[in-house]
Simulated assay, not measured.
Amino acid sequence: MADPSIKAALAAKQFIVAPGIFDMISARIADRMGFKALYATGYGTVASHLGIPDAGVATFTDMVGRMARFSQGCRTPVIADADTGYGGLLNVRHTVMGYEAAGVTAIQLEDQEVPKKCGHTPGRRVVPAEEMALKIEVAAEARRSEDFLIIARTDARTTLGLDEAIRRGQLFRKAGADIVFIESPETEEEMKRIGGEIDAPLLANNVDGGGRTPILSAEKLASFGYSIAIYPAVGFLTMAAALERSYAHLLQHGDTNALPEGVIHDFGKMNELMGFPEVWEFDRRWARPEASRAAE
């Protein structure tokens, strides 16, 4: 069931910072931190689950099970990337129902053509605005709870310009979107204009490592009119960097002694993170004397 806390935070004008999660290790770590929401990144989830680019190959079936695991394995509400809704209007309806049943709190739908592409890579094309507006209407009708939020994303800025992206954001809001996401604005001035011209909670996509949009502080984003900042790549980029350093050290030295401090996690802490103490306590409570086992 959708968590009402995100909707309540938006109503109370509380800014939401959401780190990207892409597997259950990243989800468990982020879940302990005290964030108001977690962002289940499509790029990272497809990469970790299938080892392929986020280029529209992953299906609803590939993704909904992963989103269910994130939602059910975390206490923090999950915002989930659902690409284009995996097809036409009927697919969007099915996707919304499936993600809501999985326990997701907010679903992100975008106006790209199929197959879609990552929002900070070239070659993206968008469907007609009216076609996407219908998808938003269908999504809003398909949900069971008003606490389940619809995020409408447009990728029009890169190919059609900022004016069209803002027009689409306004249209999608009227169609029933709870949150509007203008992907890939390229300057602070563009972001400020978006905040001034779209009357809706706004989401900013802060892509570390070379995204198209400047990464701004929560305070500055809030002053521009934004309500949510997602950091989809921070988790898997950090993991990739640490793995490269650790594996390179192992290849060069033949062991993992003298790895740089902070590169490798403490094994005991990892056991605790994954819930082993509960397993050990269960084993202690249900252990039987050796004599009882021998008699069997």
Rank of each mutant, 00 (worst) to 15 (best):
residue 5 S to Q: 03
residue 6 I to T: 11
residue 15 F to N: 11
residue 15 F to W: 07
residue 16 I to A: 08
residue 16 I to C: 09
residue 18 A to F: 05
residue 19 P to E: 10
residue 20 G to K: 00
residue 20 G to A: 05
residue 25 I to K: 09
residue 26 S to Q: 08
residue 26 S to F: 03
residue 28 R to C: 11
residue 30 A to W: 01
residue 33 M to G: 13
residue 36 K to E: 09
residue 37 A to W: 01
residue 42 G to W: 01
residue 43 Y to G: 07
residue 49 H to E: 15
residue 49 H to W: 04
residue 50 L to I: 12
residue 50 L to D: 14
residue 56 G to M: 03
residue 67 M to T: 01
residue 67 M to G: 14
residue 68 A to T: 04
residue 68 A to L: 05
residue 69 R to T: 15
residue 70 F to C: 11
residue 71 S to Y: 00
residue 75 R to F: 13
residue 78 V to K: 05
residue 79 I to S: 15
residue 79 I to Y: 01
residue 80 A to F: 00
residue 81 D to C: 07
residue 81 D to A: 08
residue 82 A to Q: 05
residue 87 G to I: 07
residue 91 N to D: 14
residue 94 H to N: 12
residue 94 H to D: 14
residue 97 M to L: 10
residue 100 E to T: 09
residue 100 E to S: 07
residue 104 V to Q: 13
residue 106 A to D: 06
residue 107 I to Q: 06
residue 108 Q to A: 14
residue 109 L to R: 09
residue 111 D to T: 04
residue 113 E to D: 07
residue 118 C to S: 12
residue 119 G to H: 05
residue 119 G to Q: 02
residue 123 G to W: 02
residue 123 G to Y: 03
residue 124 R to F: 09
residue 127 V to L: 03
residue 130 E to H: 10
residue 130 E to V: 06
residue 131 E to D: 13
residue 131 E to Q: 11
residue 132 M to P: 02
residue 135 K to T: 03
residue 135 K to A: 06
residue 135 K to R: 15
residue 135 K to N: 04
residue 136 I to S: 03
residue 137 E to Q: 12
residue 140 A to M: 03
residue 141 E to A: 15
residue 141 E to R: 12
residue 143 R to M: 08
residue 145 S to H: 02
residue 153 R to K: 05
residue 155 D to S: 08
residue 156 A to R: 00
residue 161 G to S: 07
residue 165 A to S: 12
residue 167 R to H: 05
residue 168 R to P: 11
residue 171 L to I: 05
residue 172 F to I: 00
residue 174 K to I: 08
residue 175 A to H: 02
residue 176 G to Y: 02
residue 176 G to R: 03
residue 176 G to S: 04
residue 179 I to T: 09
residue 182 I to C: 10
residue 182 I to V: 15
residue 183 E to Y: 06
residue 183 E to S: 09
residue 187 T to Y: 01
residue 190 E to M: 10
residue 191 M to E: 09
residue 192 K to D: 13
residue 194 I to V: 12
residue 198 I to M: 09
residue 198 I to K: 04
residue 205 N to D: 07
residue 207 V to Q: 02
residue 210 G to A: 09
residue 210 G to D: 12
residue 211 G to R: 03
residue 213 T to E: 01
residue 218 A to G: 14
residue 218 A to H: 02
residue 219 E to V: 10
residue 224 F to G: 14
residue 226 Y to M: 09
residue 227 S to P: 02
residue 230 I to G: 11
residue 233 A to S: 15
residue 234 V to R: 02
residue 234 V to P: 05
residue 234 V to I: 14
residue 234 V to K: 00
residue 241 A to H: 14
residue 242 A to R: 13
residue 242 A to I: 08
residue 243 L to R: 13
residue 245 R to Q: 14
residue 250 L to M: 15
residue 255 D to V: 00
residue 257 N to K: 13
residue 259 L to I: 12
residue 261 E to Q: 13
residue 262 G to Y: 15
residue 262 G to I: 06
residue 265 H to L: 09
residue 266 D to I: 07
residue 267 F to H: 07
residue 267 F to R: 13
residue 268 G to A: 07
residue 272 E to S: 09
residue 274 M to P: 09
residue 274 M to S: 08
residue 276 F to T: 10
residue 277 P to Y: 05
residue 278 E to W: 02
residue 278 E to I: 00
residue 278 E to M: 08
residue 281 E to H: 02
residue 283 D to Y: 06
residue 288 R to S: 11
residue 289 P to Y: 08
residue 291 A to Q: 11
residue 292 S to E: 11
residue 296 E to I: 11
residue 296 E to R: 08
